[in-house]
Write a protein that binds this DNA or RNA. Structure first.
Ligand SMILES: [Zn+2]
Ligand SMILES: [Zn+2]
Length: 815
DNA sequence: AGCACGCCGACT
DNA sequence: GTCGGCGTGCTC
């Protein structure tokens, strides 16, 4: 068997939650174009055509079925097998299928799926008289718009229409065709050249009295860009710089002064940015420690308080990678990917930075994918959110994970339910790349690893220019109420602080970890709370849009004028969200400029960006918001930070709640005190004595860690054990409970693991599915992989039981 | 996950 | 009788 002959069969992965790969035959003529990582078109099922990825090549003809043939080769999407190994690892580690991993890994532009198109084959005059009106309607639609799909019909007329259409196909009046929309992946860029020998014409354009001002601006912009050292001047850049329109540019092209050539984007040379700034003494020391840690092949954890200059260190490290020609990935929490950060990195790395996150368009994402795959200089440095770990790297040298502790690195639904930080660490080991974790408040896991000697710890505790840490004041809501010093949700102390800041033209940030106006609408007469009819949770009032919304399933409805049970019109709102806080602030400080930053207002990119620039330039006095105000924003005029109520952070029923509370409070506190004045933080609470708050007050991470790790050691939580959360779902509550109880007892057969539960999660019904969870605790000295396999086999066994077949389940590994 | 097939209740 | 509901099982 010679490898020159090529393989006869390919195992492919489909973007579906299927446990195994599927084998297709390779037509001889396609054989030379197919390798591992090639994207191919295959038929799967009776009609549908999908793009799939080749994961294995072989010559073993299957004996129990006749494989279908690969229809077409779409080209490579992954060049380095290590990326596929990464997918495989993730599926196994996070207990899901490789298809599910593929589904999140690939930008959707790379996932083709055919649609069934219908065409009317017979002229109206020959239509059978016996056809019903609905049939005629289907025929009319398909005749008028020949691209009508089966899905279009279903969307418009319901599933019945699909059955009708199939009948029409059977009797031969309707034709059926699978159609796929192909996408070109190569990006062509229009590059502009100037014909310098056209001296006279150029002089004429540049003449101060020229009538063609727009054209003059373009020529000037061209010279400006050239002077800045750009090797390629694209049409895009020219139009942006000159503010002229395409019309003016076309005129110059017609005069033969400018010339436009199209080149592939991958052929562009990218200009690098400026040199990195010199490090301070403390930073230099930290830098050397990081290098030393890397030299020992260890992961480095950089524990540096806000404003200690972590980003400068990142830049220095990335500069080194840039010089060596390797690829570097910088992970950032999604909401911290602000223009502020991007501009800063562009300054240092010019056009060698690529962005990758979910708010980008599909086209932009697949462009970055291709660019990384080809190892273009334009994507030597990728700054991205969680999903950037799936990019097809081939020469990855360094991964930086900023805000390492951030909970948004975890994807909690759907599968794969993975921890992006931990996955990135595994990715790095596949490539032999170094990893730097950066944070002001390390996660308990990471800090634990430094104490175990697994990670190197680098501390950077000197703030810039001797900036001082903010003063934290705890305000006892109960006491304030007694003294009649609460106005709505605000204590007199906080009001006075805001007032003082306003008078001195300083900014204030108010943090409330809940969006909407109020989380509960309750009837004062019968006590009925407006609940979501699909979930076991109260509906949140969104006053601005006058609607009730479910934050779990997304359903919304208008606010009822009266109680739906007793008809009473005495409806009261309980609890406060950001909208209400904003309202209260406007009446407390009528003249102040107040803005709100939360998921609802950040929907519009424009409004979001405006808010950030207004905040920077001092156009906003008070910014109210959820966690979004705690991330990535470097506002320099903020002096006061207020936390409306810390208690809902502290008493969340989850073992990580205290860690999260500490991190959030420290971060929001860190927003203040960059203006030269010492920042002031006011935390309102009923529990001034809570340990977390005392640690925040003294900014004492180590004390917090000691306390928290003691708790987790005592009550057996990670990092002292491994923990997996197994969740069961079903529409029938009784069946779900029975299944959960039985499975729990079966899982106890797996040796040495601790099985806890089953218990209901805080919200026990979402989208009409009841949920029950089982916690599995696994000792650290036991093989994680082997135990997971045992758990899998118990579950597979259990869920093939006829009674429990319909119960759905999923795992949250390292929950 | 889709999608088809097939088995049962309610409406011409 | 037929239509349409959803439960069940397969997809190379
Ligand atoms: Zn009522
Ligand atoms: Zn809901």
């Amino acid at each position: 068997m010679s490898h020159l002959v090529g393989f006869r069969f390919a195992e492919v992965l489909l973007p579906r939650p299927l446990a195994n790969g599927f084998t297709y035959e390779i037509p001889t003529e396609l054989s030379p174009h197919i390798r591992i990582g090639t994207r191919v078109l295959v038929q799967f099922g009776p009609r549908k055509i999908y793009s799939a990825i080749v994961i294995r090549l072989h010559n073993n003809a299957p004996d129990n079925y006749e494989p279908k043939q690969i229809l077409e080769v779409l080209g490579p999407v992954i060049d380095d097998v290590r990326n596929l190994q990464f997918w495989q690892w993730m599926a196994e580690y996070y207990m899901c299928t490789p298809g599910e991993v593929m589904n999140v890994a690939l930008p959707s532009r790379l996932k083709l799926e055919s649609e069934t198109q219908l065409q009317c084959l017979i002229e109206e005059e020959y239509w059978d008289e016996n056809l019903e009106a609905e049939d005629r309607e289907i025929l009319t639609i398909t005749r008028n718009s020949p691209e009508t799909t089966l899905n279009d019909l279903v969307k418009q007329y319901g599933t019945a229409a699909a059955k009708r259409a199939k009948k029409l196909v059977d009797i031969g009046v309707l034709g059926i065709k699978e159609s796929i929309k192909y996408h070109s992946l190569e990006k062509w860029i229009k590059v502009v050249h100037i014909n310098a020998h056209k001296k006279k014409e150029i002089e004429a354009i540049l003449h101060p009295k020229t009538k063609a001002k727009a054209q003059q601006n373009i020529v000037l912009a061209y010279y400006q860009l050239q002077a800045e050292g750009h090797l390629f001047i694209t049409r895009e850049m020219l139009l942006n710089r000159s503010t002229s329109t395409i019309a003016a540019l076309d005129a110059l092209v017609r005069k033969n002064i400018l010339e436009i050539r199209e080149i592939k984007e991958s052929a562009l040379f990218s200009r690098s940015g400026v040199q990195a700034a010199k490090l301070t003494e403390a930073q230099q020391e930290a830098y050397e420690k990081i290098l030393k840690t890397f030299a020992e092949n260890k992961i480095a954890l950089l524990h540096g308080i806000t404003s200690s200059g972590k980003t400068e260190l990142y830049v220095h490290l990335m500069k080194e990678i840039e010089k060596s020609g390797g690829q570097c990935l910088m992970l950032v929490p999604e909401i911290a990917l602000t223009t502020q950060l991007i501009n800063r990195l562009r300054h240092f790395f010019g056009e060698r930075v690529s962005l990758y996150h979910s708010r980008m368009t599909d086209r932009e994402r697949s462009d970055v994918w291709e660019s990384v795959r080809k190892n273009d200089p334009g994507s030597q440095l990728v700054v991205g959110a969680r999903s950037a770990i799936f990019l097809p790297f081939s020469n990855l040298k360094l991964i930086i994970i900023d805000e390492e502790h951030d909970s948004s690195y975890r994807q909690d639904a759907p599968n794969p339910r993975y921890q992006g930080r931990d996955s990135a660490i595994y990715l790095a080991t596949l490539f032999g790349a170094h990893v730097l974790l950066g944070t002001a408040t390390p996660s308990v896991e990471s800090y634990f690893n430094t104490l175990q000697g697994k990670y190197g710890l680098i501390e950077l505790h000197q703030r810039y220019e001797g900036l001082q840490l903010p003063e934290v004041h705890l305000i006892n809501i109960r006491e304030e109420k007694k003294k009649n010093r609460m106005k709505g949700n605000f204590s007199q102390t906080l009001i006075e602080a805001i007032d003082d800041a306003l008078r001195r033209k300083k900014q204030t940030i108010i943090f409330q970890n809940r969006r909407g106006y109020s989380p509960k609408l309750i009837c004062e007469d019968c006590g009925t709370v407006q609940m979501c009819d699909r979930c076991d949770i109260s509906l949140t009032i969104h006053k601005a849009v006058h609607r009730l919304k479910c934050h779990y399933c997304g359903r919304e409805k208008s606010i009822p004028p009266a109680c739906v049970v007793c008809g009473s019109i005495h409806l009261k709102m309980l609890g406060a969200g950001t909208e209400q806080i904003e309202d209260e602030l406007s009446s407390l400080f009528p003249g102040a400029r107040i803005e709100r930053l939360d998921l609802d207002t950040a929907q519009s990119k424009k409004r979001y960006n405006k808010m950030l620039t207004d905040m920077e330039s001092g156009q906003i006095d008070i910014l109210v918001g959820t966690q979004m105000v705690t991330k990535g924003l470097n506002f320099t005029k903020v002096e006061v930070v207020g936390v409306v109520n810390a208690d809902n952070l502290l008493y969340f029923p989850e073992y990580r709640a205290h860690e999260r509370a500490f991190q959030l409070l420290e971060q929001v506190a860190g927003r203040s005190g960059r203006s030269g004045q010492v920042g002031k933080v006011f935390i309102q609470t009923y529990n001034t004595g809570h340990p977390v708050l005392t640690f925040v007050k003294t900014h004492d991470y180590k004390a917090f860690y000691e306390w928290q790790s003691q708790e987790r050691k005592t009550f057996l939580y990670p990092p002292f054990v491994r923990m997996i959360h197994l969740m069961l779902r079903h529409k029938d509550l009784k069946l779900l409970q029975k299944a959960s109880i039985e499975l729990t007892s079966m899982l106890k057969s797996v040796s040495e693991i601790l099985v806890i539960g089953p218990e209901f999660p805080p919200v026990n019904r979402v989208n009409n599915y009841y949920r029950m969870g089982i916690f599995l605790k696994i000792p650290r000295n036991k093989s994680y992989l082997k135990t997971k396999r045992q758990i899998w086999s118990v579950c597979l066994d259990f869920f093939t039981h006829p009674e429990y077949k319909t119960v759905k389940f999923f795992f949250e590994v390292d929950a």
